[in-house]
Nucleic acid binder design. Structure first.
Lengths: 350, 350
DNA sequence: TTGAAAGCGCTAACAA
DNA sequence: TTGTTAGCGCTTTCAA
C-alpha cells in the first residue's frame, strides 16, 4: 500500500498538499496540482490507512451496535427475525452515511465499555438495555447514543444529556389493541405470553390488563404465561404452557412476539389444539415470519426495518453536530388482521 | 483515556516497561514492577488505543465477512435465515478468539477490496462468491481467505495459494438424495426450484438430474422452476410457478432452499393446492424455519452454524500461522424427514 | 499557493 | 532489568 508521503515524494510536493487534495480542501491549491495529484491517486489506487487517520483525528467512523443479551437464549441473537430486520435497517443507513457498523454481543457492561473505548467508537446504538445498564454506559461514554426500545425512567432522563435519543414503540397501546381485538373477536379467557417482565413487556402487560379491565374480564395470576426461553427449556416450557391453556380453557393468547406466537401455535397443533378454531393468537412485530406462517399471524405491526433505520439516522445526525428536537421517538403499532384469530362472523353463522 | 506514556511518567519508568507488562512479556521484568504496573493499570482502568496499536503493528484484529449480493434481493441479506445462522456461527468463534467481525455488504468487488485494505483486515471470509470474483479478490489481497460455498474450478485452484480454504456442502449428493426421496415416495413429476444456476445450484441441478435418470424419469426444460427472487418479482413469480405446477401436474418439488420451499408451499395453499397431499416438497438447509413451519419441512439438513464456525476456525488457524491439511472441507448433507412429503404407506393404505 | 514539522498512542529494536 | 528512540501513516498548525 502506497502512502501519502511516497506520493508526495514522487510528485515532488509536500504531504500536506496531497492530503489537502484528498480531502477536497482545494481552495488554496492550484488547479494544476489538483489535477496532477488526483490523476496519480487513481493511477496507484491510493487507499488511506484508516488506523492512521483515526489515530490522528481521534475518531473511528465506527458505529457500535451493542446487543446485550443472555448467552443462553433460545436462538442466537442474529437468527432472531426481529433483530435481523432491525440490523438490516441500521446497516443500510450506516453504510450509506460512510460509517462502519460493528456489532458487539455481550451481557457484560464492563466488557462493552472496554470494547467501545479501545475502538474509539464514534457513536453507539444500544438495543435491549435496561435503565441502569444504559446509565452505566452513559456515565463512561460521552459521545452520541441511540437506544432502541429502552425504558428510561423520568428521574434518569436528565442523566443522558442531549447526545441521546430513544426509539420506541407505544407498547402499552400495542398490547391494549391486540388484546382488545381478541376480546372483540369473542375470546373470554386471554393469556399474556412473554419470557420476561422488563421494560417493554411491563408496558405491554399494562396494556393487556387495561384491555381486560375495560371489557370486564377478570385477571388472575395464572393468565401470565411466563415462558422460559433458554435453549434447554424453551420446548418443554412451551409444552406445559399449552397444556395449561387447554386444561384451564383459554381461548386467546396475546403473545409478546411473533416468534413466540409461532412456537406456541406449533405446539398447539402438536397437542391437537386447533388455531384459531380453539385458541386465537395475536403476536407482535409483524416480522417476516408472520406472513409466511400458516395460519398467517394476526399481529401488531411495527416497522422494524424503519426502527433500525431511524436509530441509525438519528445517531448520524448527532454525529454531524445537529441538535435533535426530541429525545424520544415513539412509533405507533398497527393491527394487521390475518388468520390466527377466530373469525367471529364466520363462527356465528354456523 | 490515559496513555502508556502518562502511566510510565506517573510510575517513574519507561513506556517500554509498561508496554511489556501489558503484553505479558514479563520474563525480563522484576516481579515488583510487574505488580506496580498491573495494580496501576487496574486502578486507572487502562484501555489500549487499538488504532495506535494497529498502526504500529500493521494489523487490525479484524476479520472481514464479505457478503456479495445483489441489492434488490427479496430479503435483506441479514434476514435470510441461512445467512443469519452462518453469521451466528462465525461471530461466536471470531469473538472468542479475540478478533472482531466486520461484515461488509456489496456487489462491487472494487469497493470490497477498498474497504478491506483501508481497514487492513487480517483475514477474509467470502460468502456467495463466484470463481472469478474470488480470484479478483485473491489477486489483490494476500492474507488468509476462507470461502463458504465457493466453486473454484480446477484450473484456478492453484491461484489461491495455501492461505486459502473453502467450506462447502456436497451439493450434488444433497440434491440427489432429496430428489431420490421424492421419487421413492411416489412422485413422478418432480421440479427443481432455484433462483439461479450459479456454482451451488449447478451442482445441485446435476444431482437432481442424476436422481431422475436413475429412476427412469425424463427431464424436460420446463422442470426447472426458475424463480425470480427480487423484491418486486418474488411474489408474482412464485404465483406463476405454482399455477404452472398445477397445470402440468407436478407432484413433487425439490427446492434449493428452505426459504423458497416455504414460500412455494404458502403459495400452494393460497391457490388451493394441498401440501403434501397433492405436491410434495423437499427443501435444503434445515434452517430454523424448517421445523417451525406447518407442515414442517422435509429437508436436506446441513449444519449451517457449524459451517460458519468452521470457516472462522480455519481462518483463525491460518492467522496463527498454522498450515491447513486441506484446501477444502466438504460437509455431508442428511435427509430429515418431516411432513412436507407425501407419506407413501399412509397413502397406499387408503 | 505550498511546505516543514510536530504529534496522535503504541511497539520494538537497540542501548544502557 | 530498564530506558531511549525511531517510526507506523496521517492530519494540522504555522510558517514561508
Amino acid at each position: 500500500m502506497i502512502t501519502i508521503k511516497e506520493i508526495a515524494k514522487t510528485l515532488n510536493m509536500s504531504p500536506t498538499t496531497v492530503s489537502n487534495v484528498i480531502h477536497g480542501k482545494t481552495k488554496e491549491v492550484s488547479p494544476d496540482t489538483i489535477k496532477r495529484v488526483q490523476d496519480f491517486l487513481e493511477e496507484v489506487e491510493y487507499v488511506p490507512n484508516i488506523n492512521a487517520r483515526n489515530l490522528a483525528q481521534n475518531k473511528s467512523k465506527i458505529i457500535g451496535v451493542v446487543l446485550k443479551i443472555r448467552q443462553d437464549r433460545y436462538s442466537h441473537i442474529y437468527t432472531d427475525p426481529f433483530v435481523a430486520e432491525m440490523l438490516a435497517g441500521m446497516e443500510e443507513v450506516i453504510r450509506k452515511a460512510g460509517y462502519f457498523m460493528m456489532t458487539y454481543i455481550s451481557d457484560d457492561i464492563a466488557e462493552i465499555l472496554n470494547h467501545v473505548s479501545t475502538w474509539n467508537v464514534d457513536g453507539l446504538i444500544l438495543f435491549c438495555m435496561l435503565d441502569d445498564d444504559a446509565i452505566r454506559v452513559r456515565k463512561k461514554y460521552h459521545k452520541p447514543i441511540a437506544c432502541v426500545d429502552a425504558y428510561i425512567s423520568e428521574e434518569n432522563e436528565s442523566a443522558f444529556g442531549d447526545q441521546f435519543i430513544n426509539i420506541a414503540l407505544d407498547d402499552e397501546k400495542c398490547a391494549y389493541e391486540g388484546t382488545t381485538y381478541l376480546v372483540k373477536s369473542g375470546c373470554r379467557k386471554v393469556a399474556f405470553l412473554a419470557d420476561n417482565m422488563d421494560g417493554v413487556n411491563k408496558a405491554r402487560f399494562r396494556g393487556y390488563r387495561r384491555a381486560l379491565d375495560e371489557n370486564g374480564i377478570e385477571y388472575s395470576d395464572r393468565d401470565y404465561f411466563a415462558l422460559r426461553s433458554t435453549k434447554k427449556e424453551m420446548k418443554s416450557s412451551m409444552a406445559s404452557l399449552v397444556s395449561n391453556a387447554r386444561r384451564y380453557g383459554y381461548d386467546g393468547v396475546f403473545s409478546s412476539s411473533d416468534l413466540f406466537a409461532i412456537h406456541f401455535i406449533r405446539e398447539c397443533f402438536k397437542q391437537g389444539i386447533l388455531v384459531p378454531e380453539e385458541i386465537s393468537v395475536v403476536g407482535v412485530d409483524d416480522s417476516e415470519l408472520a406472513e409466511m406462517y400458516r395460519p398467517s399471524l394476526t399481529t401488531m405491526h411495527q416497522d422494524i426495518h424503519r426502527k433500525g433505520a431511524l436509530a441509525a439516522e438519528a445517531l448520524i445526525r448527532m454525529l454531524k453536530g445537529e441538535k435533535l428536537e426530541r429525545r424520544q421517538i415513539v412509533l405507533k403499532p398497527e393491527l394487521v388482521v390475518r388468520e390466527s384469530v377466530i373469525d367471529f362472523k364466520k363462527q356465528s353463522a354456523e
